[in-house]
Computed example of a mutant assay.
Amino acid sequence: MAATDFKDYYATLGVSKTASPEEVKQAFRKLARKYHPDVNPGNKQAEARFKEINEAYEVLSDADKRKKYDQFGQYWKQAAEGGFPSGVGVDMGGFDFSQYGSFDEFINELLGRFGGASPRGGRQSYYRTTTGAPGGFNNFNDFGFQDVGTAGATQDSEAAIALTFSEAFHGVQKHLNLGNEVIDVRIPAGAKPGSRLRVRGKGPVSPFTQQRGDLYLKVELQPHSFFQFEGENLVCEIPITPDEAVLGASVEVPTPDGAVTVKLPVGVRSGQSLRLRGKGWPQPRTGRGDLLAKVAIVPPKDLSPQEREYYEKIRAARTFNPRSHLQQVKL
């Protein structure tokens, strides 16, 4: 990668390199609202800018990725994915990484200089590996790694793959550039953050057997303006008015399949979650999960004279005191 290909993600979000995670998030949200395609329909420049903002936030909001980005600069992806493109001379402080088939190989070589394992030194080496024959593709199998020191082991690697919520929900086919080859990978519907997919025979070459290990793809989702995950649950926030909370109402709630009408119970509280069964994320074995819609009571900022009059009448006639139990609170 040439130096001119380097993307300064801090500059993209307009934050300093010492910015806190909260500052990074605030900068992203501000820019995302400004350049979101829904706000700029048909504007290709805004769309490209929005993609750059998402890309920058994806890296800087992830502590591990940000650490690699700060450490390796324009070579952070090669370090994160475990390898550099073959035949490319990489200049990092005068050190040439291109002599190594993967970043793990460089680490092993480095450890070998201090008396550890080294694949080039011919001594016994220990890799983060798993056994398995090349060929084939398994979906959503979280394969554990085991440390093995046998000459028959294959060497695996892990890389992150970023998906939009739509791609992860519906499934998508992705073209992956592995440096010396491009492969097509089908991501099945229902990929979640942290899901790991195994691509057989597309990992690094073992220094012992010259056979390729497996490539594990860890799914990361780009932020969505409305939906998000909390653990295994798909959640969203539904703003309602005070009168809807007191009297109950029927409101439309967006779901991945489109809007549905939901009946709010009388006296619903802010923060209360309404479960929309079968309207959540696809489940590999059980069909569809549920969507949790969190209620947020939003008071109006600008009142008409009539609205203000009615609210004042309500206040004057109100008998309910939600803080009455606080009178007995003491240390």
Rank of each mutant, 00 (worst) to 15 (best):
A46G: 09
A46Q: 11
A46K: 11
A48F: 11
R49S: 08
F50E: 04
K51P: 00
K51L: 08
E52S: 12
I53S: 03
E55C: 05
E55T: 13
A56L: 07
Y57R: 04
Y57I: 02
Y57M: 07
E58H: 10
E58T: 10
V59D: 01
V59S: 02
L60T: 09
L60A: 02
S61V: 14
S61R: 03
D62T: 13
A63L: 09
D64G: 01
D64E: 14
K65S: 14
R66H: 08
R66V: 10
R66C: 03
R66K: 15
R66I: 11
K68D: 13
Y69D: 04
Y69S: 06
D70K: 15
D70R: 14
Q71P: 00
Q71W: 01
Q71H: 07
F72M: 09
G73S: 13
Q74V: 12
Q74C: 04
Q74H: 10
Y75L: 15
Y75C: 04
Y75R: 09
W76P: 00
W76H: 09
K77S: 06
Q78P: 03
Q78V: 00
Q78T: 01
A79T: 05
A80I: 01
A80E: 04
E81T: 06
E81D: 15
E81R: 07
G82I: 01
G82F: 02
G82D: 03
G83K: 02
F84R: 01
F84P: 00
P85K: 15
S86T: 15
S86D: 10
G87R: 07
V88I: 14
G89A: 09
V90I: 15
D91N: 14
M92Q: 11
M92H: 11
M92K: 11
F95K: 05
F95W: 08
F97P: 00
F97Y: 15
F97D: 01
Q99V: 12
Q99W: 08
Y100E: 02
Y100T: 12
F103Y: 14
F103W: 13
D104M: 09
F106H: 03
I107D: 07
N108P: 00
N108R: 10
L111V: 13
L111Y: 09
G112A: 06
R113F: 11
F114Y: 15
G116N: 05
A117W: 01
A117N: 08
P119N: 12
R120D: 11
G121V: 00
G121C: 03
G122T: 12
G122Q: 12
R123N: 14
R123P: 00
S125H: 05
Y126C: 06
Y127L: 02
R128N: 10
T129N: 11
T129H: 07
T129E: 05
T129Y: 00
T129K: 00
T130Q: 10
T131L: 05
T131S: 09
T131D: 06
G132V: 11
G132W: 06
A133H: 02
P134G: 10
G135Y: 11
F137Q: 11
F137R: 12
F137H: 08
